[in-house]
Design a protein around this nucleic acid. Structure first.
Lengths: 195, 195
DNA sequence: CTTTTTTATTAACGTATGTTAACTATTGTT
DNA sequence: AACAATAGTTAACATACGTTAATAAAAAAG
């Protein structure tokens, strides 16, 4: 069951890991379960872990001054999620992570992260590749946010992430796209008319 | 003159590099100069380098289907810039990089990047830290794009990056903020009234 | 099953930003 | 210095999306 993570690592590194490397790493992980609606990371508190989802769904969000929540990222089985700002700086979290379903994660704390990166260069490489991909995807998403209208963005999202359309409530998808739920409703209705 | 990069690396790693480590790395770099308006990276062609700016300014942009250009990132002395999508995948660039002033860069090609990361784990670490910071900043920028109006975003930008306000034309700053130059003009006028 | 809570829909109206177009200011070129 | 090209401003009008509010549908809880 932990092996979904091992194969994730080996796929990114494009090679198999020596068994003792992975063992060293996996001994630093803790398993934890959350109920639906539980907060995995809470804004205002230090976020001392990164989380690898092995079961369930959750999402990262930020709350603005008006008290409105904005979904930034969704995660299901095989995704890492956390407030990286807080994790890497040690400052208070500006994001929250909340479970959308009963969710199981493998968690790695800051010290263990440092240890594994210092001890096994393969893990520095692994996390670099993760961040590389995340950065490229995020930059592309921002480009689309600044150039396409909400309908186009919704269609691209639905095509790229059909699993999220299934498992994430529509008001959070609207929020992720940078619009209100009413607007997404309107967009979907207009689209269904045109069919 | 190359040492602006060395100190950049040592600042991120939070330690001094063995002199032979840096020498190994810097021998893989090429220096190149561009005139104002030159394309450093051209959309549609492979982007085979990452660029560290030692002099001048340039910016990364993407052109949408309607032919409109969207500024994604600015870089002046001490910044890395490139189309990382193309650089890491080997596919055709979807972004361009263009000089806004006469600009000097140190460039590192894909093979050399691989070599230095494979040979010196410190560089995997360095590029992980770079990407980490870039990801965190980009995620925050997207959060603001989805939650604040253009006036607020402009004010935050001007405060955080006064150098760019000096050296980058206003229509590119508008584009970076996700609005049209006319809108930024209006915002600035309204603000000056309220003073 | 029934009730309550949460999520989604719809419609009328408001607003920030886009569009078009004309004009001015600035910068670069001969 | 004169001219051309680029960048910035302004204003009238258009539009995508936000706001408010009422209702309906679906999911969770008793």
């Amino acid at each position: 069951m932990i092996d979904i993570l091992k194969s994730h690592i080996e796929r990114l590194l494009n090679r198999t890991l020596p068994e003792n490397n992975y063992e060293f790493f996996s001994n630093l992980l803790f398993e934890k379960s959350f109920d639906k609606k539980d907060l995995i990371v809470e804004e205002g508190k230090q976020c001392n872990h990164i989380y690898f989802v092995t079961e369930g769904t959750c999402y990262l969000s930020i709350t603005d001054e008006k008290g409105e929540e904005h979904a930034m990222q969704f995660a299901l089985e095989g995704y890492w999620i956390s407030d990286l700002y807080s994790f890497f700086s040690g400052k208070k979290a500006i994001y929250s992570v909340k479970a959308l379903e009963p969710t199981k994660v493998l968690m790695l704390n800051r010290d263990s992260f440092q240890t594994v990166c210092d001890t096994l260069p393969a893990f520095d490489r692994y996390f670099r590749l993760l961040l590389q991909n995340a950065f490229i995807a995020l930059q592309y998403r921002l480009a689309k946010t600044n150039s396409e209208d909400a309908e186009h963005r919704y269609n691209e999202f639905a095509k790229a992430f059909p699993q999220f359309i299934q498992r994430v409530p529509q008001y959070l998808i609207a929020s992720y796209l940078g619009i209100k739920p009413q607007s997404l409703s309107r967009i979907r209705k207009d689209a269904s008319f045109r069919k």
